[in-house]
Design a protein around this nucleic acid. Structure first.
Lengths: 217, 217
DNA sequence: TTTCAAAAGCATCCAGTGGATACTTTAGAA
DNA sequence: TTCTAAAGTATCCACTGGATGCTTTTGAAA
C-alpha cells in the first residue's frame, strides 16, 4: 500500500481537512496534496505557557466547565493531542490555570494591611474574575494535595490571611480555625452574591457586610 | 429498497445491537431478526417519575456532573431519546431532581423549632446528601426564576428560615438580609467542610460552630 | 561532524455525550 | 370505529477526552 510522506504521521482526514481549508483560504494556493502547516516551524517553542494563557483567557470568558482541549489547541494553532505533551490531562491543565490564578491573588493580598483591606481585595479579585474564582474553589481538595505547585499557590493566599487575621493568636490550631471562619464567610458571601441570590447589593456593600461578619474574629 | 417493519422506526444499528444481545442473553432464543423489546409493554406507563427517581439515585451516587441521559434511560429500560418526551433537556432533568431534593429538605425543616435546630437539620441533610446538595446549590439563579416548581421548592426552605431566624424582625428587607447572612455561613461552612478543608471536625462540631456564628443575628 | 535517542509535533481512531430527525405504536377521545 | 397526538424507537450528527502510532526536530554524546 503506497503512502506518501506526510508531516507528522498520516495524511489528514478528509472531513477535518475540508474544514481547515474553509478556515484558511491560503491553503487554496497550495494544492490539495500539500500539507497546510498551522505554523511556520514544526516546534511551537512556547506551547506550555501559550496554552496556559489561552486556557486562562477561555476559562475567564466561558467558565471552566465549557473549556475543551480542542478549543485551547486551536487558539494556539496546534493539534489537540499536542497538549498532552505538557499536561497529563484536562484536569491537569485546569489545575495549572487555577495555580496561576492563586498566584496572582496572593500577589495582590501581600499588599493588604488590615482585615478590611484583605476582605476588600479578596472580594474584588473574586468578583472581577468570577469564572476563575469558581475554577479555583472547585479544584478537589484531594487533588491539591498531590499537586505541589497548586498547593504552594494556595498556601501563599492562606499565609496572608494568617498574617492579617491571626496576629494575636498563639496556638496553630486556633490560628487555622480563625482563618477558616474567615473563609467560610468570604466563600459563602461571594458565592451567593455571584449567584445573584443576595438582592444584588453593590460590591462595596458586600465588602462592608463581610468585613463586619469577620470583625469579631 | 425493501425494508421489514420494525417496532419504533428503523431496524437497530448493528454495533449497538451486538452489545444489547451481549447484555440480554434471552435475545439468543428469539432469533437475530426479532425485535428484543426492553420491556413487555410499548408504553412505560410511569416514565417521568421513574426517570426522576433513577436520576436522583444516580446523582446521589456519582454527582450531577457525571450524570448522562443514556445512563438514566438504561436504568429505566428505555431509549435515551424517550426522556425528551418528559424533560426538555438534560438541565431540565437536573432541575427536576433539585426541586425534589429541596422539597424533601423543606419537609425536614418544617419540624425545626429553634435556630440551632434549623442549623443542625440543614447541615445534616446537606452532609448526608452531599452530591444532591451540590446539585441544589449549583442551579443557576436565572434558571430558577423561570422554573416555577423549583422556585416554589426553594421558597419553602427559605420560608422556614424566616420563621425561625427572623421572628423579631419587622422590615421585609431586614428579614431577607438576616436570612442571607444565615445562608452565607451555612453554605460556606458546608462547602468547606465537604471539600475537606476544615481539618475534618465532627459533624457535631461543625453544627456547633455554625450555630455560634449565626447566633448573633 | 555525525549519530541517535528523546521530546514535541501530527492525523487518525475510539467510545461516549447531548441533541435532532424521522419513524412506529398505542391509548383514548370523537 | 376511526384517527390524532403522545410516547415510544433506531439512527444520525457534531463534539468531547483520551489512545495509538507515526514523523520531525533538537541537542548531547561519540
Amino acid at each position: 500500500m503506497p503512502r506518501i510522506a506526510w508531516p507528522g504521521g498520516h495524511p489528514p482526514d478528509r472531513k477535518r481537512r475540508r474544514r481547515a481549508v474553509a478556515l484558511h483560504p491560503v491553503a487554496l494556493y497550495e494544492g490539495i496534496m500539500t500539507a497546510t502547516p498551522r505554523r511556520a516551524t514544526y516546534r511551537h517553542g512556547n506551547l506550555k505557557s501559550a496554552a496556559l494563557k489561552a486556557a486562562t483567557r477561555l476559562v475567564a470568558a466561558s467558565g471552566h466547565e465549557q473549556l475543551s482541549l480542542r478549543e485551547v489547541a486551536d487558539a494556539v494553532g496546534v493539534a489537540h493531542r499536542s497538549l498532552y505533551n505538557h499536561f497529563a490531562d484536562r484536569e491537569a491543565l485546569l489545575d495549572a490555570v487555577a495555580a496561576g490564578a492563586y498566584t496572582r491573588l496572593a500577589a495582590i493580598l501581600v499588599k493588604a494591611g488590615t482585615p478590611g483591606d484583605y476582605t476588600a481585595k479578596y472580594v474584588r479579585f473574586a468578583l472581577a474574575n468570577r469564572a476563575l474564582y469558581t475554577l479555583m474553589t472547585s479544584r478537589p481538595h484531594a487533588t491539591m494535595k498531590h499537586n505541589p505547585p497548586l498547593q504552594a499557590a494556595v498556601h501563599k493566599v492562606i499565609a496572608q490571611a494568617m498574617r492579617i487575621f491571626c496576629q494575636d493568636i498563639e496556638s496553630p490550631a486556633e490560628r487555622r480555625r480563625a482563618v477558616m471562619k474567615v473563609y467560610i464567610t468570604l466563600y459563602g458571601g461571594i458565592s451567593l452574591y455571584a449567584a445573584g441570590v443576595l438582592d444584588q447589593p453593590s460590591e462595596r456593600a458586600l465588602i462592608a457586610e463581610l468585613s463586619a461578619m469577620n470583625a469579631g474574629m
